[in-house]
Amino acid sequence: MSTSTGHRNPGPDRSDSVENPLSKLQVYNDICEFEDTLGKLVASVDRFNPDLELARALIEADKQLYKSLECLPKYDEIDTRAKTLDEEHRDTDEKTIRILETLTECGSDLNALPMLEQVEFERETMLKQREKVFTDVLLDYAMKLAKFTHVPPTFDKGTVGPNNFVWPAEDAMRRGMLAIASLRASEGANAQEQQASSEQKTSEKSSENEEAQTDIRSPDTKEEPVARRPSFGFDGSGAKDHESEKADDDIDLDLDLFNSEEF
């Protein structure tokens, strides 16, 4: 740190007695020293007691002060360099911050986008879902629509009647294949409970039972002639393998047109 010249008596506004930071300033101290010595010299002269030594001391103080002042251009140059450096720091900081901000923005933007795999999976699932139409949804929708629609005036209600139903009548259904199959299924189930260990179709049955639905398929239907048409899936895939059909049925066949509990 810069040293201060040796002062003998700190004056009233001498740096080291009032403000500490100022005492580190060489120029400030030199000014104080000059001021003090001048004051003493002036006092000695005005008191008719001029002291030549004070004049010598003043000369030394003056030399010291102007020696310090010679440093001013150097300080000026340092100041210019410091300011330039500060500006360069600011510039670089600004540029770097801009890049980082932009990167962060891009990052958040990208993060906001969903992942490709996820997108594809969701799309596939959605499409698959769309392939299957839930019947209750369909019926609900139809019922809803029915509330707001009415029979077109040109439609002859007479054409819709038990005689024109496209589906078989109730009694016909009771005597139909589905009913018989269903009866046989429940008979078969009873029979199977008695012959649990010898049957090899337990897996098929257990899968049926898991569904807790009246399964239109029984082991007996496998013995049905191949000519019997398999049930349709709405994806129009046509004839399916028995196994895969079963799998499909297990998953989604909700087409419970005949519920033995209801009738």
Binding site: M1, S2, P21, L22, K24, L25, Q26, V27, Y28, C71, K74, Y75, I78, D79, A82
Partner: peptide
């Protein structure tokens, strides 16, 4: 004050 409180060497 800030400028003059360091010697030129310290500033360098």
């Amino acid at each position: 004050r800030a400028l003059l409180s360091k010697t030129p060497e310290e500033w360098e």
